[in-house]
Amino acid sequence: MSTGLPDFFKHNLWANLRLLDACAELSDAQLDATMIGTFGSIRETLMHMFASEEGYAWSFTKIKPSLPLKEFSTFAGFDELRRRAEMSGTALITIAEQEDLSQIFYLDGGTYKCAAVIVAIQAINHGVDHRSQIATMMSLQGIELPALDAWGYNDALAENIGK
């Protein structure tokens, strides 16, 4: 089994989809609760997470959805977030497998220069950070959390191998 950067993005997609499944079961009050030190409510954080992930994928592919999540004025809904997460997550896996990550990007209208690998690292870091914030908000509301860490991912991979 070869391992590398694509595996980080495979875990990222798996964790994002598990988190969406868990959040889809929450009440409006739970989704809209906020906590100091986090991005915003669970609903707002999910929208931000997946809008950003679309942006990271776009940095490489230059393919934007007809209506990017960052342009939504209301919550997109869990079915749409799942669809978007699968699209951007799969794109990031392919990017990690096939792209030249040493290429230089000029972001923010050409004002910010960085290697493509920095965008890849940020995509992973951003997902972990906001999943952790959502997990904290869920935990403080007494909601049981799904395992989103590497151990949970390993267990899921082992379960799928046995099927």
Rank of each mutant, 00 (worst) to 15 (best):
F72C: 00
F60K: 02
N16P: 09
I134K: 07
A15Y: 03
L157I: 15
T34H: 12
I121H: 09
S2A: 14
A91P: 00
I93W: 03
G110Y: 06
H126W: 02
G89Y: 10
L13P: 06
K10W: 01
S73V: 10
T61N: 04
P6I: 01
G77F: 00
S2M: 14
I134C: 13
A135H: 02
F72Q: 00
S102E: 13
A150Y: 14
G55S: 12
L67D: 09
D100L: 12
L46F: 09
S102I: 11
A96K: 01
S59C: 15
Y56G: 01
V117F: 12
S41G: 02
S102Y: 10
T74V: 13
P65C: 08
A158N: 11
K64V: 01
L69Q: 00
I93C: 05
N16E: 03
Y112G: 01
A120G: 04
E54Q: 15
Y112F: 15
T61H: 05
Y153D: 03
T61K: 04
S66P: 07
W14S: 07
P6L: 03
W14V: 12
Y153S: 04
A51Y: 11
G142V: 15
Q122V: 11
W58K: 04
L31N: 00
I104F: 03
I93P: 06
M47E: 07
F50C: 03
A147Y: 05
E144T: 14
F9V: 04
E99G: 01
R84E: 02
D21E: 13
S66T: 14
P65N: 11
G127C: 05
A22Y: 09
G109K: 05
I63F: 05
A29H: 04
G37R: 04
L69H: 01
S73Q: 13
D21H: 07
I121K: 07
R83A: 13
I36E: 08
N154E: 11
V117I: 12
A91C: 02
S27F: 03
Q122N: 13
L148R: 06
A29D: 04
E53M: 06
I124L: 13
A147G: 11
T45N: 02
E86C: 11
I95A: 00
S52G: 11
P68A: 08
E97T: 08
T38A: 15
L20K: 08
M87A: 04
L31D: 03
H48K: 00
A24V: 03
M49H: 05
E99R: 05
F105W: 09
S41K: 05
L13D: 06
I121E: 09
S88V: 06
A116W: 07
M49R: 06
G142D: 11
T136Y: 01
H48R: 01
A156S: 15
K113I: 05
L31A: 01
F105E: 05
H48E: 02
Y112L: 13
D7V: 08
A115R: 10
H48T: 09
R84C: 03
L13M: 08
N16L: 06
D32W: 01
M1E: 13
A91D: 00
I104H: 01
L140T: 10
Y153I: 10
A156D: 15
I134S: 11
L145Q: 14
N160E: 15
T94N: 03
D149W: 08
N154M: 14
L19H: 08
K64Y: 08
I104D: 02
